[in-house]
């Protein structure tokens, strides 16, 4: 039957042609990051507001000491589909930071409290300063980090991932790295200034273990463990990298339902038109 052949053709094409692109990601890990169950995974996924707020706390108190997030603006924190802080809270958060503005009428730059329209302030004025403070290593900008990291899946996982809609390589990797610090495996010597990490490519990472149990205070009774911090901050980074994910998946469902109904109508119209033609 012809319908079947086109569906088969499309599916086969998807399988055969789309697959190899992701097969070539950097390997060299000792183990693959465990796949966590994320609230934003799957066709009906959406961000967990409480988790994003906790993740933001970890991000603000720990990560931003060294990492910039240049595409984040304070105003983003109150937009729909994110941590959903109130506008008053965002104003409060922004005002805790001093922002360089200017020049004023006398030509001088000046400091003022942050506003929601301001960019998230970077911890260092430039990459060189960041390197100088971090033993020569540059802490990457975190704005799209959750989409800029991945891990090697290999055959046949990279094909099935398209069908199960697995798109969480980045967050799983970030969570794994944050929880992957340990004493070096036997026989491994770690260079001075580097740290052993099970999931980092090459296993030697410049970032010292950033999180420890009880480091960030959660007020909602969530366990204050490294694993929980890592999960929450990874989720926050995913939101920062993909702030419109909720809208995307919601609109996607509406679009697909509409198209399925439309294709049904078209199928029966087509059948009726072709009814008296042998073909």
């Amino acid at each position: 039957m012809t319908i079947r052949s086109i569906l088969f053709g499309a599916a086969a094409a998807a399988l055969l042609f789309t697959a190899p692109a992701t097969a070539a990601e950097a390997g060299g890990h000792d183990g693959r990051p465990p796949r966590l169950s994320w609230s934003f995974a799957g066709p009906f996924g959406s961000y967990d507001t409480a988790q994003l707020q906790r993740g933001f706390k970890v991000f603000k108190e720990v990560c931003t000491a060294c990492h910039s997030a240049n595409f984040l603006y304070f105003r983003n924190l109150s937009q729909p589909g994110g941590p959903s802080f109130s506008e008053a809270q965002v104003k409060q958060i922004a005002s805790e930071y001093q922002i360089t503005d200017g020049p004023n009428d006398s030509g001088d730059m000046f400091q003022r409290p942050g506003r929601p329209s301001d960019q998230w302030p970077a911890p260092f004025p430039n990459d060189q300063a960041a390197r100088a403070s971090n033993g020569g290593a540059l802490p990457p900008d975190m704005s799209v980090l959750a989409k800029a990291r991945s891990y090697h899946v290999g055959f046949p996982g990279f094909i099935t991932d398209a069908f199960i809609q697995y798109q969480e390589h980045g967050v799983d990797y970030i969570h794994a790295v944050l929880t992957g610090y340990s004493e070096p495996a036997e026989g491994v010597t770690v260079q001075a200034g580097l740290h052993y990490n099970k999931y980092f490519p090459g296993n030697q990472i410049a970032m010292p273990k950033p999180l420890s149990d009880g480091q960030v205070e959660y007020t909602d009774g969530t366990p204050q463990t490294v694993d929980q911090y890592s999960t929450d901050v990874a989720a926050f980074l995913m939101w920062m990298a993909e702030p419109h994910l909720d809208a995307r998946k919601r609109i996607g469902f509406q679009v697909v339902i509409f198209l399925i109904v439309l294709s049904g109508l078209l199928y029966f119209t087509k059948k009726k038109i072709w009814k008296n033609v042998a073909h």
């Binding site: 692109a21 992701t22 070539a24 809609q165 697995y166 798109q167 998946k249």
Partner: peptide, 9 residues
């Protein structure tokens, strides 16, 4: 809508 970065790197 669901796997927008699957085909990219």
């Amino acid at each position: 809508f669901y796997t927008p970065n699957y085909l990219g790197h």
